[in-house]
Amino acid sequence: MVMSQLEFYQAKLNYEMDSWDLFEALNQGQKIVVVDGRSATAYQQEHIPNAMNIPHRGITPESLEHLDPSLLYVTYCDGIGCNASTKTALKMATLGFQVKELIGGLDWWKRDGYQTAGENAQVGTSLDCGCAG
């Protein structure tokens, strides 16, 4: 079965989210849990505020049993050149969680001007990326 272009783009939006969409959803109080799939050391250095650190290498059914499977989980990593977010999303989806991947990861989050937390935290600049238009 060949997927149409329309079906492709609809499916793509079911599985990924950009930083503007995530920022807006969090500000609107949507029930989203942001998951950093990188190592604890990388998370400690810098991460998206209020993100949970669940390194993909340690994901097991037991390590996720405290999570609510009815929520949406958005996974991220460093960004381009890193696939920890994909590995985290795959493992969580395999275990029955609803997951989306943050395209561009932490790198694009920062490029869009959003605040980070951690030892190397950056103050947000509130840039208008133009995604709303």
Rank of each mutant, 00 (worst) to 15 (best):
S70A: 01
N14Y: 00
A51E: 03
C82F: 03
A42R: 06
R111Q: 10
G113C: 10
L26S: 07
I59T: 12
K12D: 06
E16W: 03
A84W: 00
Q5S: 11
G81I: 10
H56A: 13
G81D: 06
N27H: 10
W20F: 14
Y9W: 07
L26N: 04
Y114P: 14
N27G: 11
N14C: 05
Y114K: 15
G58Q: 12
C77V: 11
Y43S: 04
D18Y: 01
K12I: 03
A84M: 09
P61A: 09
L26H: 04
Q122M: 09
A51N: 07
E46F: 15
E65C: 02
A132Y: 07
G29N: 09
L95M: 15
E119D: 11
G37W: 01
M52L: 14
V2L: 07
K87W: 08
K110T: 08
T116P: 14
I54P: 00
Y73K: 02
N27E: 13
Y73R: 02
H56G: 04
A93Q: 07
I48G: 12
L22P: 11
V123K: 08
G118F: 07
P61G: 15
R111Y: 11
C77S: 14
P49S: 05
I48V: 15
G58F: 10
N83F: 15
M3H: 06
N14P: 12
Q98S: 11
Q10A: 04
M52E: 00
C82E: 11
H56Y: 12
T88D: 01
D18V: 08
L6P: 01
C129V: 13
G130Y: 12
A25G: 04
V74F: 01
V35Q: 02
L106R: 15
V2C: 02
Y73N: 10
F8L: 11
I32P: 00
G104I: 09
I48M: 13
G96N: 04
Y43L: 09
E24Q: 13
K12W: 13
L106Y: 05
N50V: 03
T88S: 04
E24Y: 06
Q28N: 07
P61T: 08
S4C: 15
K91A: 05
S70R: 01
T41W: 15
I103C: 05
H66W: 01
A89S: 10
D18W: 02
K91C: 06
V35W: 01
V74S: 11
S126K: 14
G104H: 14
N14F: 00
V33D: 02
L26E: 05
R57P: 02
A84H: 03
L71S: 10
Q45C: 06
V34C: 09
N50F: 07
N14A: 08
Q28C: 03
Q28D: 07
L22T: 06
F8K: 05
A42C: 04
Y76M: 05
I103F: 02
L90Q: 13
T125H: 09
C129K: 07
G104K: 10
S70D: 00
C129Q: 13
A40I: 06
A132W: 12
E46D: 08
D21Y: 10
I59C: 07
